[in-house]
Write a protein that binds this DNA or RNA. Structure first.
Lengths: 352, 352
DNA sequence: TTGCTGGGAGTTACCGGTAACAAATAGTCT
DNA sequence: AGACTATTTGTTACCGGTAACTCCCAGCAA
């Protein structure tokens, strides 16, 4: 039914190859012939068959994106910035959400590798589980990790310094005078692990004892932060300040607080990470640690496209974006707090 | 490099066809042979080449999704619910964001049709611009419209009753005693047009004059709502209540109000539409009109998949989801307000 | 024994492009 | 004129699957 190269060739009385050359702007073709072909192609509304092209060239011009959660605006923003780079380069995006499920991630990746030129993955695997990816990369898979990286995996990656994220958040809470600083520590992913590490470092540096009861595991989803906090609030000795592993869990935790009649920033200080959109518009504007999601997506896209276009140089460049603290009011900031260099004060925190 | 059917065939000393049959669970194959083939395939880590399969069968098991804005959680939720249906059915998602740009939409759709089995589109075209889609559908394209439909286009669709959305929002504001009820009316899309119609109907029904200065056009993005409101606030005679065409613009407008030292729900009442995630966690919880995004995505996915699997029955079924008002506090609701049937009271609006 | 039946495997052609090489044509050089 | 070159077009084979058809052979009835 659809028009093929052969149809146009017949119409013009030339060979398929001539048409193919014209369509692809091949240098070895008469300019005049090309014009004529393109004219007819347009008239017949020719659309190249992407399957056939991909089969012949082994290039699909598709980039696969694997994110943990589409409903997390953080990843929506990363995806959008990838698209901003990929589109002009002629690539389209195949997006998958793993819902923070490692098994699902591996399944999806396996399938996506078959139909894309390369993948940008924000992995939810534990950072030590590199076996599967190691094998894929050895077999020629083009992969770039974003946001969540894996130690010991020779693979290009863009992320932030998550230990520093943990330190910035925790030290800010400590600097505000809190002594019982707790942590909603997420899961076993690299991100969670590193932020936890930063949290520990800060406690140590300030001679605060790391009390097991101060740390609670939860997932990385808002609902999980909510649930963890809801349970925590039923116990005695809830910490006076909390560093939540990311913004969605922080939001969830704040919801739980509200339901318990508590107010973030007044009764319990809380700091998130990721600087999601809407964070500054929340009931209690969320103090958070931020780095550029746009930069993240763009860099990842550039690295992947470069890798695709240039064969496979396997330069495993790792880009680390610097995090900065954004002080709003969920941390209950006092105007007298000492503000360090990587801190930005915003909106409501200014009120005195 | 990757393993092909031929490789396995050679290994086993049989023909490609036998392998193909085994892989696809073809009925005309000896069960024992199949076992043997599958065993070897697994051992060799065979992954079928999707391009080749798609070329031969003209089926890609890809569904294209075209949404106006990935950063709008509304669409993220629709996309997620589409995925929830499509995945188990063996389909993957190719997602495109048009950034509310009609030209871009047509470009993308053209390309996506070439590499997918069907499209789910939330169109940003003016509702009368049906020519392009009409042609594609005639040529066999399988398309389902979601959220934003087009009049006079024989095509399955899922949407809400947007005239009713406009009425619910506007009448609520009127019922609260406001007389100068304004409208941020979005763009020329079907959604905006119909909500505007609902707004007009409500004014008429309540014997209120439709004053041109009460209606302001803006896009559908948060940034555009912000900008429109910012300018509006510089003029005299800003309305005392505003129905914003959707939640993002309402949020943008609230930002502009805050910057001007005004507070939504106290100085200016505002109602949005769409019930985005976070709407209830905002500084001023957003009163909005809601319908099920999950239902929307699921129904659309079902209709498209049915259409794909069954050839093309072209039943242009249109599903309309009922909207309901969700009262929070951005409308400045007074506890005495009469509440009608399709209204839900939430959280802060309950305080008295 | 012959002929028929049907399950199971093989053959061939094709899906719609592209790479690599061959061929034709025109123009140039000696 | 003959050989050579450059430019443009055509031929052939192949990418990795699948549909449709053919073929083979065991089992069984006549």
């Amino acid at each position: 039914m659809p028009v093929t190269l052969a149809d146009i060739a017949r119409e013009l009385g030339v060979s398929k190859m001539t048409i193919s050359r014209a369509i692809n702007n091949h240098p070895l073709i008469n300019t005049e012939t090309r014009e004529r072909v393109l004219e007819v192609a347009r008239r017949m509304n020719y659309q190249p068959n992407q399957y056939a092209r991909a089969l012949a060239t082994n290039r699909s011009y598709l980039i696969g994106i694997v994110v943990p959660d589409l409903m997390n605006l953080y990843f929506a923003e990363v995806a959008r910035s990838i698209e901003a780079v990929a589109r002009p380069a002629g690539f389209q995006l195949l997006i998958c959400s793993t819902e923070e499920d490692p098994t699902r991630e591996l399944d999806e990746v396996e399938i996506l590798l078959q139909r894309t030129d390369g993948l940008i993955i924000s992995s939810v695997l534990p950072p030590t589980e590199t076996k599967a990816y190691r094998k894929m990369i050895k077999d020629g898979a083009k992969i770039v990790l974003v946001d969540r990286t894996m130690k010991n995996l020779r693979c290009p990656a863009v992320a932030t310094d998550n230990v520093e994220v943990g330190r910035l958040a925790t030290e800010h809470l400590i600097s505000l005078g809190h002594r019982r600083v707790g942590h909603l520590r997420g899961d076993a992913s690299s991100v969670s692990t590193e932020r936890l590490e930063g949290y520990k470092q800060s406690l140590a540096k300030n001679k605060l004892r790391l009390d097991g009861s101060l740390v609670r595991a939860c997932g990385l989803l808002e609902s999980e932060g909510y649930e963890a906090m809801r349970l925590w609030l039923k116990e005695p000795d809830v910490p006076e300040a909390i560093f939540a592993v990311n913004d969605p869990t922080a939001v969830g935790a704040m919801k739980a607080m509200e339901e318990a009649g508590l107010r973030a920033g007044r009764d319990i200080a809380i700091v998130g990470a990721g600087n999601i959109h809407y964070g500054d518009m929340l009931r209690v504007p969320l103090t958070t640690v931020s780095w550029s999601r746009g930069e993240m997506g763009q860099q990842a896209a550039h690295m992947l496209i470069h890798q695709i276009e240039s064969g496979s140089p396997v330069k495993s460049k790792q880009i680390i974006l610097p995090p900065e603290l954004i002080v709003r009011s969920s941390c209950g900031v006092k105007p007298t707090a000492k503000i360090r260099s990587s801190v930005r004060l915003e909106g409501h925190a200014m009120k005195r």
